[in-house]
Design a binder for these strands. Structure first.
Lengths: 346, 346
DNA sequence: ATAGTTTATGAATACGTATTCATGCTAATG
DNA sequence: CATTAGCATGAATACGTATTCATAAACTAT
C-alpha cells in the first residue's frame, strides 16, 4: 500500500511555538480569541516547518470535506465541458475541489455512494432528464443541492438557468422580422426543461405572428448526431421545405447543418439555421451559427455561490434565477439587424 | 454550517450484533479471521440499520482517500472530455472518485494544495507542455502518478500514449501512396510530446519517400482556433499551394478546414486534409476528416489500472506503454484503399 | 495426553483535529 | 477599591475507524 506518513501535526507546531494544540487550531481556523503576538509566533512555526493540517482529521471533526460533486449526463456534449470549466474555476477559487460523475456511461452508483458516505458537501446537477436517483437521494439525505442549466418546478433547491423561453421567443421574433415565412423546429427530448422551454418560446413567437406550425415542420428526436441529421434531410425533401430551421440547441444545429449539406441545401441562401447556447464551437466558421448565448460564466458563478452559501448556512430559501440571453447573429442567417437586448440577470 | 450528524457508527453495529467494534471493522475490511456465523450476523445488522462507515475516519486511519485527481490543461479541447469520460468510467468502476482540475484557467493552486494536503491517492496528467509545478510537487512528495496521452523521456512514473510517431508515419505513407506530391504540415506547439512525435513521424515518411518539406509548406502555432485558420489561408495563397495538409491533431484540422473554406479551396478536390486523434466530432460530416484514431478507452483503462496498482503496491517499476493507432479514411482524402493495421497494444 | 499452533475475538490505543470547559488574567465599571 | 465582564489560553475530550496486543478456544502434531 503506497501511503505516506505525516511528518507534522498540530501538536508538533504547538510544542515548537510553546503553546497548546488548541491554540494552533485556533490560529488555523481564524479564531479571533488569540493574542496577535501568539498568532504570529504560531504562524511563523507553521511557515518554517511547512506544516499543513490533515484534511481528513478536519473533515472528521467538521463533517465538511471541502469537495463538491458535479453530476453531468454526458461529458462529451460540448456544452458540458464549458459548464465544468466555469464551475471548476469558481470552486477552485473558493478552495473547493470538484469531483465529476458522468452518469450516462457510469450510471449513478458513484454519486449515490458519495451521497450516502457523505464525502461531498454539496452537489451540482446539470441539464438532463427529470428522473435521477442521485437527485432524490441527495434530497432525502438533506445534502445541499444546486442545479445549473435545468429547472424543475417547485424544487426545494436553488436553480440557475437562462431565460430559455424568452430567448427562444426573441429568436422567433428575429426570424419573423427578417422575413422568414416557413419556419420549422427541430428539437431534442422534451423531458429536458431547457428544450421544452425553448420550444414553447419558439411556438409563442410563431403564434403571436399568426404563423402556423404544421406537423411536417416540426421534428424531435433523441440525442444522437445522426438522428438530427436525418430529420434535416427529411425536412428538406418535402415538396415545400421550410425557409428556416430553429434548433433546440447548437449541437442539434450542427447535426442539422450536416443534414442540409447532405441534402444539397445552401445555408443561408436556401435555408436559415439557428441554434441555442452559444457554445464555443458555434462560432467556428464551418458552423458559424446564429445562436442565443447563455451567460455560462455568470450562471456557474451564481450556482457555486449559492451552493456554498447553502452549505454554510442552510437557512437561505431556495430560488430559481433566470439569466438573460444574447442573440448572436452569424452566417447561418442573412439578416444582421435586430435590436439586441443586453444580457441581464433578472 | 449545513452539516449532518452521523446516526450510526461501528460501535452501534457492534452493540446490536453482540460483538466488539474491532470485529465490525474486520468484517468490513474483509479480514478473513472472522467466523462465518459472526460475519453473517454483523452483515445483517449493517444491512438492517443501513450503516455506512465514515469515509473520513477511514481515510485518517488508512491514509487513503479513495479519490484520484486528474489534471487537464484545457477541458474545452474536445479530446479532453473523451479522455475524462473513459477515466471516470474506469475510476468509478473501481470505486474511486475523480476530481478534476483545469489548469489553463484555474492555475495549479488547486492541485498543489491537494498534493500537499494529500487528499488524493494519486494523480493522472493528460497532454500538455512539459513544465508543471504540480507534476514536480507530486513527484517530490512521492505521490503515485500516471500520464495519459503524453510522454516524457526517463520519467519515473507510468505513461500511456499511442504510437504517435508510427501513426503519423503511416499517415504520411498513406498520403504518398495515394499520389500526393506537395504535402504540407500544420502543427501546434512542439513542447507537447504528442505533436512533436507526430511531426517527426510525418517528416520521416516524407524523407523516406524522398520528398522535400520546404519551409513554406510547414507552419506551426499556438492553440487558438483562428491561428490555424489563418495559417491555412496563408498556405493556400502561395503561388504553388500544397495538395495535402497533414495536421497535428483533429482540432487543428477543424480550424484548417475553416481556413480552406474561407480561402475557397475545395476539399478533397483541391486539397486533402488529415487530422490525428479520431475524436468523435471528426466523424461529423461537416468535418468528415481522415484521421488516426487513438484507442482512448484502452489507454484510459490501462492508465487507471497502473495508477491504482502503484497506489496499492509501490514496488512496480514505471513503464511507457504505447498503443497502436487506426487509420480512419474519410471524406477529406479521396483515396480509400490503404492497408490498415489493426490497433494493437505493444 | 501434552505441547504447540492456529483461529476468533475483545480491550485498548492511535490517527490529528475542533471544541468545550475551566482558569487565570486584564480591563472596565460602579 | 471591589466587582464584573471579557480575553487568552490549556487540559481534556470526542469524532469513527483500523490495528496491535492479549487471550481464550479450538485444533494439530507428537
Amino acid at each position: 500500500m503506497h501511503t505516506y506518513s505525516q511528518k507534522l501535526n498540530s501538536n508538533d507546531i504547538a510544542r515548537h511555538a510553546g503553546v497548546s494544540q488548541a491554540t494552533v487550531s485556533r490560529v488555523l481556523s481564524g479564531n479571533s480569541n488569540v493574542r496577535e503576538e501568539t498568532r504570529q509566533r504560531v504562524l511563523e512555526v507553521i511557515e518554517k516547518l511547512n506544516y499543513r493540517p490533515n484534511a481528513f482529521a478536519q473533515a472528521m471533526k467538521t463533517r465538511l470535506s471541502g469537495t463538491v460533486g458535479v453530476v453531468v449526463s454526458r461529458i462529451t456534449n460540448p456544452i458540458v465541458p464549458e459548464v465544468l470549466l466555469h464551475l471548476g474555476d469558481e470552486l477552485t477559487a473558493r478552495g473547493k475541489r470538484m469531483v465529476v460523475w458522468n452518469t450516462d456511461t457510469e450510471g449513478e452508483d458513484g454519486v449515490l455512494n458519495a451521497i450516502r458516505q457523505r464525502v461531498i458537501d454539496g452537489l451540482i446537477f446539470t441539464a438532463a432528464g427529470h428522473q435521477s436517483a442521485a437527485l432524490e437521494a441527495a434530497q432525502q439525505t438533506g445534502m445541499p443541492i444546486a442545479c445549473i442549466n435545468r429547472h424543475i418546478d417547485g424544487a426545494s433547491f436553488n436553480q440557475f438557468a437562462c431565460s430559455n423561453l424568452e430567448g427562444a421567443r426573441t429568436m422567433a421574433d428575429y426570424l419573423i422580422a427578417a422575413g422568414r415565412k416557413r419556419i420549422a423546429i427541430i428539437n431534442g427530448p422534451l423531458d429536458r426543461s431547457t428544450l421544452a422551454d425553448r420550444e414553447a418560446g419558439l411556438r409563442q413567437g410563431l403564434h403571436h405572428a399568426g404563423i402556423e406550425l404544421p406537423d411536417n415542420y416540426y421534428a424531435s428526436s433523441d440525442f444522437a448526431h445522426n438522428n438530427f441529421r436525418e430529420l434535416a434531410i427529411e425536412m428538406m425533401s418535402q415538396p415545400c421545405p421550410p425557409d428556416a430551421i430553429a434548433c433546440g440547441n447548437d449541437v442539434i444545429a450542427f447535426a442539422v447543418m450536416c443534414g442540409l449539406k447532405a441534402a444539397g441545401a445552401k445555408v443561408p441562401d436556401d435555408i436559415w439555421v439557428t441554434g441555442f447556447d452559444g457554445i464555443e464551437m458555434s462560432g467556428w466558421d464551418v458552423f458559424d451559427i446564429t445562436t442565443m448565448k447563455q451567460p455560462l460564466d455568470a450562471m456557474a458563478s451564481a450556482t457555486v455561490e449559492a451552493l456554498i452559501s447553502t452549505i454554510e448556512n442552510s437557512e437561505a430559501e431556495p430560488q430559481l434565477v433566470r439569466f438573460g440571453t444574447e442573440l448572436i447573429i452569424r452566417g447561418t442567417t442573412a439578416n444582421t439587424s435586430f435590436p439586441q437586448q443586453p444580457p441581464t440577470k433578472e
